[in-house]
Design a protein around this nucleic acid. Structure first.
Lengths: 132, 132
DNA sequence: GACGACCTTGACGTGAACGTAAGGGGAAGC
DNA sequence: GCTTCCCCTTACGTTCACGTCAAGGTCGTC
């Protein structure tokens, strides 16, 4: 039962990123592919981390921030102090995400209002048009 | 009743940004302050746009994207075709934001699960500790 | 009338996140 | 054996979003 791995090309096609990006993420220590000679072999763990990286990027986090967050998702065992620190970091991140969600909802409400205004303007226009 | 305006410093203090940034946003045509001689006078409209700029940045939009979106928020009157195009753009943006919100909720759920795991680990540790 | 606070326009510098050649290695197919 | 992929490293280039001087104008005040 050999563990499934992915070549760089496979991951690139799946997630629509360039090889350069994956190598860059490795260089920045966000991914840790193993090697088959020169070639990189990305593990399931790498694939999961990549998902989180791309998600983080879509929310405007820097790679440095994402790197810190990724460490939260790799908890296996450790010292109690380590775990406590990790928990605190995770909860800080939770607060941050919650704020972001609230702000996003505000943005959506604003946008809806804007869309409503445009629609009213369009209706008005069409009434004028019909009245001519 | 003269319309209220803000100096660059006032806006900077209020929103915690640098003058350089505001000048940069003007250079990029995201803000359009009027002039008192050499000096910039930012209007209420500029202030509102700045709010949206900063919000957009927090969600990871580029200044170029934000510029496009800002135009949606400046609808007064225009040709019907213009309005229709604006409406379509606004609705596309709405879809984008909605997706972002859904993904954000997924991220929050994942994080909660992670936090739960860490808490279970901590409890286990403390039980072992108590058993010694 | 000098001083400090605040503003201006250049213009070069910077960090992040890659893009893009240049040159090379190894396996698979004809 | 040659070509075609797919991969590799090294290294310089690029874009974005500003930061950071430099040099100077314009107020109010002491």
């Amino acid at each position: 039962m050999s563990v499934q791995t992915y070549t760089i090309g496979e991951l690139c096609r799946e997630f629509d990123v360039t090889p350069r990006s994956l190598r860059f993420y490795e260089y920045k220590e966000l991914l840790h592919p193993i090697r088959d000679g020169q070639r990189r072999l990305f593990t399931q763990s790498d694939r999961a981390r990549l998902k989180l990286i791309l998600r983080g990027k879509r929310f405007g986090f820097s790679l440095a921030e994402i790197k810190d967050l990724l460490d939260l998702y790799g908890v296996g065992d450790g010292q109690l102090t380590q775990l406590t620190a990790t928990l605190e970091a995770a909860e800080r991140h939770r607060v941050e995400l919650t704020q972001k969600r609230d702000e996003l909802n505000t943005a959506l409400a604003d946008l809806d209002e804007q869309i409503g205004q445009i629609q009213r303007l369009l209706e008005e226009k069409s009434r004028h048009h019909a009245a001519e």
